[in-house]
Nucleic acid binder design. Sequence first.
DNA 1: GCGTTACATATTTTT
DNA 2: TATGTAACGC
Length: 740
Amino acid sequence: MQSSPFSHLNDQQRQAVTAGLGQTLVLAGPGSGKTRVLTERIAYLVRDLAVRPYHILAVTFTNKAAREMQSRVEQTLGDPCRDLWLGTFHSVCARMLRREAAVLPFDSNFVIMDADDQDTLVKRVLKELNVNDKLYRASGVHAAISNAKNNLMQPKDYPRRNYRDEVIARVYERYQQMLLQSNALDFDDLLLWTVRLLQENPDVVERYGRRFEHVLVDEFQDTNTAQYLLLKLVSSYHQNLFVVGDEDQSIYRWRGADYRNVLRFEQDFPEAKKILLEQNYRSTQTVLDAARAVIDRNPHRTPKHLFTDRGSGERLVLFEAADDHSEATYVVDLIGQNMAGDRKAGSRFAVMYRTNAQSRLLEEAFLRSGLPYRLVGAQRFYGRREVKDLICFLRLVANPADEVSLNRTINLPPRGIGDKTIQSLQAAAQRAQTTPGAALLELAAKGERSAAFTALGGRGAAMLLDFARLLAGWMEAARQEPLPALFDRIVTETRYEAYLRDGTEEGEDRWNNVQELRKLAYEYQDRGLGPFLENLALVSDQDTLPEDVTAPTLLTLHAAKGLEFDNVFIIGLDEGLLPHSRSLDDPEEMAEERRLFYVGMTRARNRLYLVRSRQRSSYGSTEFSEPSRFLQDIPSALLEERGAQRRARSTRPSEVQASWARWETPVPAPRSPQIIPPPPPAPKVVQQQYRPGMRVRHPIWGEGLVVESRVLDGEENVDVAFESVGFKRLLASLARLETV
DNA sequence: GCGTTACATATTTTT
DNA sequence: TATGTAACGC
C-alpha cells in the first residue's frame, strides 16, 4: 500500500523528517504532528541513514512524552532500540552526572531534592543566617536562587546590586553548601552541574560530543538558558541539532523557560534550516481562526497560518454566567446533556481553568449532577505528607548525609526528639567534622558507652540512640533484603500505621496512599532502592494518575498542553483571572497569559466553549469582574453568544438556557461605574460596507479576508486577516480598503 | 516536647 | 474560604 515510506506525511513534515545534517528548527503549530515528526526522524536516521541508536540523543520535558516517543520509535522500527538515549532533560542529566561523578564534588549516589525539599532547605538557611523571613519570604528567595541556577550563576556570580541581592547571595551560598554536604542536588542543579561538567572537562564534552551524532529536542520553546547551553555542548562535535517547538505554546516562563531561545537558535546557527508545520490535524478551521486572532496580537513571534482540511465546524460558544456557581453548573449541565446518558462519552469533554482553586465549584457541580469526573493535578500523590514521609525514610537509608530527610523523619512519629535535641546533634556533628547522619550511625555502632553519647547527654541521647539503631538496622536491611521488605520494616518499626490510622476517614485515605507507594516499591524490587528514589524524584504525578478514560477531565490550562479533546470548556475568562491579576503590569507576563489561553483553545477538536462570570467569590468575598480582554480579540462572526445579556433579549430560551436558568441567582444592581455591563451597541449611523468572507486589499498589507465587521460609535470596525501580517482591526473610514 | 489557637496568605508547577 | 505556619501555654 505504502509506495513511499513517507506517504503518510505532508510536505512540510517530510521535509523536516528527512532534513539533512546540521541544525534544524521545526516550528510546529498545535496539532501539526510534531511528535510524529520527531519519531519519524529518529526512525529515518536509524533505518535510512544507518545511524546506530547508540549515537542518538533525544530529549523531552516530560516522562510521558519520552515514553510515548520511545514506544512509537519501537513501533516504527519494529525494534526495542535499547541503545537509544531518550529521556527528559533531568533524567539525562542525572544519568550523566552519576557516570561522571569522579570529577564532581558529590557522590554518584546523590539524592535529588524536589521543590518541597528546596523550600525546606531555604527556610532552614534563612533561620540559620537570622534573615528576617517576613521580608525575605522563602518562596521568593527560592525563586531567586532557582533563577540564578537556570542562568548558570553560582553564588559568587550572583549580582549584588542592592541589599536584597546581598542577602540572597548569602543564602544561596549557604544553601548550596548544605546541598553538597547532604550529597544532594536539586532539580536545577541537575542541569547546572551537567553544563559545568561539560564546560570544564574537555575530555568529557568530547566523549559525549562524539557519541551523540544526532541530538533531537521536543518542546524547544520551553528550554531555559542552562538547557540551551547543554544542547549546544552536547551537539558541539557533530553539530546535528534538531529542535521542535512553538513559541506560541511557551507557558513556563516563570520557571526560567525562554521562548527567545528560538530566536537565539536562529542567530547562533544562521545556516540552520527552518521548517514551519502549519497543517493542523486536530481542530476545525473556526477554532483555528479564533485562536489565531488571539495569538496574532503577541509580538516577537513567527506568524503562522494554521489550516485544516477538517472544515469550518461550529462557532465558538461564549457564555456569560451570573456568578461562579452558575458558571460551573452551566458547564456541568451542558456536558450532562451532551453525553445524553452515554457514560463513555464523558472522555470527550474537558474543562480548563487558570487556577486550581477554580476546580472546586466544578467538582461540587459534578457531584450534584451525579456525573463522574477526572481531576488532573490538584493534589499531588508524591506531595502528600504520608507519602513524602516514607520517601524521606528511604532517602535517608540510601544517603544518611541527607539532612532534609533526617530532620523530617527523626521525630516521626513523635518520639521525643525535639528541636533542642536535634540542635545538639547538629552541634556534635559539626564538632566532629561530620554530618548529623554519620554521627548518628557512629552512635549506633558504639552505643551508650561512646564519648559521643555522653557528650550529647541525658534523655535526648537515649532517644537519639533509639533512632540511630533503627536507621542502622534499615541500612543493613537495604543491603540484605529486597526493597518491599525494607519498606515494611520501616513502616513496622516506626509504628507508622498506628500513627496514621487514627480512626478518621482521612487516616484511612492516608494509609491507602502508603499502600500505593508500597506497590510501587514492589515493582522496583529488581532494580533496588537507588533507581526507585530517582524515579520518585523525576517522575511526575500525571504518570501515575488512575486513568478513567470515560469521564470528563478537569485540569488547569498548564496541564492541558499536549492534550486534545472533542469539546473544550475554558472557564473564568475574566480580567484578573485570565489574564491573571499578577501579570497585569508586565507585558511579557501578559503575553504569556495570552499564550496560555491559546494553548487552551487549540486543545479543542470540534467545539470550544468560552465561559465567564459577572461576579465571583475569591478568598471569601464576592467581587464583580469584567470580561477578559482576550475575548475582544475573537471576531464575533466566530462566536455564538449565550448567557445573561443574550437571554434577556431572546424570546424563546433554548433548552440549555432554561436548564441553567434554574441555578441562576439574581444579579445585584451594579453600584459603581466600572461594573456596569457594556452599553448596548450604538445605533447604526453608518451603513456597513464589509461583510465576513469578503476579500479586500489594503495599500500596505495587501490582500486579506474580512473576518468580521461591526458598527461601533458610528464607525465601522473591520477585522481583516491579511496574508502578510495576519490579523488587524481597522476603521473602514480611515483604512483605504478596496474590495477585490 | 507537644498540642492548641491565632494569624497571615493566597498562580501556573513538565522535573 | 481554607490552609499552613508561628507563637503560646501546658
